Simulated scan of single mutants.
Amino acid sequence: MKHNVPVFGFTKTRHKPTWGLDPDGIILIPCFTFSIFTAPRIGKWRTIFETLPKIADKIKWENRVKKVMWRGARTGDRWWLTEIGERKNDSSLDIQFIDWKSGKINRHYSDNFKTVQQYCQYKYLLHQEGWSYSNRLKYLLLCGSPVIYANFYEWEEYWYHLLKHDYNILVFKDKGNEKLFKNLTHAIGYDDQKAKFIGTNGKALVEKYLSEQAVLCYFRNVLIEYEKLFTYKPVKHPNAMKIDEFLVGYSS
């Protein structure tokens, strides 16, 4: 559907219509998680941005678990890839669904749940899209381990143009081709130097371009360009609230 005014969105794809909207008319803005995320052990992006790299740096590369790790909910089109891991016939894969139900360790989720801090204990990480995009990618990259991005439907956030295959991420698009997926995971497992190179570059990307200051700078420039479309001078509404309060639903 064509529209006459810009539509702000956290994500879009050209693979299929984004809720009936023309992707060319969607202006990507930073996801709400650049403010705060209510998932367990995450919270404010500012805090994670400062603390997670320090946690990762304390875990020596040679001491990280030599497996491809992923945990996630049963959303979107994640079944094919996750089923490969859940067969448990490949010791290099630790890919499992989690359930949001009471476990022995926590009453909110199953016992195989991993915090974003625990992700940094693994040498290789997997990122899967959900119903649309998944906002977890920036957290994974901060661990400094190479991330395999299963980008089947080409959902993108505003900063994804910075992702470069074989440089700061490993992009996998061949859904249904188990042989190619296994070849990719085994190849990166055999080339420690390349794996560390990609992981280091992925971490550097986030630290350079996704700091709080960089995110606000991008948002400011978007609004400056948007303002040029106005034929009147907008004024602040008396009931206006901070953007993070609006997006998350409560004050941070």
Rank of each mutant, 00 (worst) to 15 (best):
M1F: 09
V7T: 10
T13Q: 07
R14W: 13
K16I: 00
P17E: 08
D22R: 09
P23Y: 04
I29G: 07
C31N: 11
C31P: 05
F32M: 15
S35N: 06
R41I: 03
R46D: 15
A56R: 03
K58Q: 14
I59E: 07
I59L: 08
K60D: 14
K66I: 04
V68N: 09
V68W: 13
M69I: 05
G72C: 01
R74M: 11
R74E: 12
T75N: 05
T75S: 04
W79P: 02
W79C: 09
W80T: 00
E86K: 02
E86G: 01
S92E: 03
D94W: 04
S102I: 01
K104Q: 15
I105H: 13
N106Q: 09
N106H: 11
R107D: 14
H108F: 13
N112I: 00
T115Q: 00
Y119H: 14
L125H: 04
L126F: 03
S134M: 07
S134T: 06
S134H: 08
R136S: 15
L137R: 06
L140H: 04
I148V: 15
F152M: 04
W159G: 15
H165A: 14
I169K: 09
K173R: 12
N177R: 02
N183I: 00
A187Y: 03
D191S: 11
A195N: 01
G199T: 03
G202W: 09
L205Q: 02
V206E: 08
K208D: 06
E212T: 13
C217D: 09
C217Y: 02
Y218E: 05
F219R: 03
V222G: 03
I224G: 00
I224R: 07
K228H: 07
F230P: 10
K236Q: 14
H237E: 12
H237I: 05
K242F: 12
K242Y: 13
Y250H: 12
S251W: 08
